[in-house]
Amino acid sequence: MKTLVIYTHPNHKSLSYAFLQKVIQGSSENANITEIKVLDLYEEKFDPILVFNENKRRRDMHADPQFEKYREQIKWADKIVFVYPIWWGRPPAMLMGYIDQMFASNFAYRDKGGMLPEGLLKGKSAVCISTMKGPTFYLLFWLNNAHKLLMKKALLQYVGIKRVKFFEFGYMESPKGRHEEKLNKIYRYFKSLSN
């Protein structure tokens, strides 16, 4: 299994970065994971800003040479792992800018004229690992599960990725946040992952 980890946090001393390290550690100890690549969007200085004009059309985004290496990473991966904080009830703007540009029509999906498109990333699976300051039930009850709906239904299932696993960790800025327990949960998950 080839695994692409997309890490989105500007600070390498953050808890998100500690979760990234547990993903890498667990994956490197798992014989089912043959290769792992990490895309650190901030370190990469990925430009999240969409540009459409007379020279750069939205309908051509799937073939934009600026993003060829990122498209190749997505095509290469069997499993895509997203590691990010929840800010204002959703992933960071940097990750959303990556999604806007990478999950383009005629690369990630194809319009068929009906209500739903044909997902072109079928057969892949995804894991979303997110951290937040408040309790996890805040997203569920106050925001009507908007984060999961966005990532699972509006994005991943739309492009054909049906198997999606979520780890949402709350109270991450609290000394009572059980950080080690949660970090070890991610390590164990990736160490024992079979598909």
Rank of each mutant, 00 (worst) to 15 (best):
I36F: 00
P91E: 08
N55M: 07
I86V: 13
G114Y: 11
K69A: 15
F103G: 02
Q73D: 13
D60A: 06
Y98T: 03
D40M: 11
Y84H: 15
E44G: 03
K112F: 06
S105C: 11
D78R: 08
I80S: 01
G119F: 03
V51T: 13
I49W: 07
G113Q: 02
H62S: 09
L41P: 00
G97H: 12
L95Q: 04
A93C: 12
S125E: 02
K75V: 12
I74E: 05
D47I: 08
E72T: 09
Y42F: 09
K112L: 15
E54S: 08
R71I: 07
D78W: 04
R58G: 13
D78T: 03
W87C: 00
E44W: 02
K79P: 01
L39M: 12
I74N: 03
G89S: 04
E118G: 05
A77Q: 11
K37V: 10
E35W: 06
I86P: 01
I80W: 09
G123S: 01
A104S: 11
E72G: 04
G113K: 05
L41N: 02
F107W: 10
V38P: 10
V51A: 11
W76Y: 15
K69P: 13
F67N: 09
D100P: 01
S125M: 01
M94T: 13
Q101I: 12
V51Y: 04
E54N: 13
P117N: 02
Q101A: 07
K75E: 14
Y70S: 05
P65N: 14
I99E: 03
I74P: 04
Y98P: 04
I80M: 13
K124I: 03
M61D: 15
E43K: 13
K79Y: 06
Q101H: 05
D64Y: 06
P85G: 05
M102S: 08
A104R: 01
W88G: 00
P117V: 09
W88S: 00
R71C: 12
M96P: 00
W87G: 01
R58I: 09
W87Y: 07
W76Q: 11
D47E: 11
K75L: 13
K45D: 07
E68L: 14
S105D: 10
V81I: 06
L41D: 06
R59P: 07
K69I: 11
E118Y: 04
P92N: 01
R58C: 11
P92T: 00
P85A: 10
K37T: 15
N53H: 10
D100N: 07
L120W: 00
L121P: 05
M102D: 11
E68K: 12
R71A: 13
F107P: 03
F46L: 12
R57F: 14
M96D: 02
S105N: 13
A93P: 08
L39S: 13
D60I: 07
V83M: 04
D111K: 02
K75W: 06
V51D: 09
Y70T: 03
P48N: 11
R59N: 14
V51E: 14
R71L: 11
G114H: 08
S125K: 03
S125C: 04
Q66V: 06
E72F: 05
D40L: 09
Y70E: 14
V83F: 01
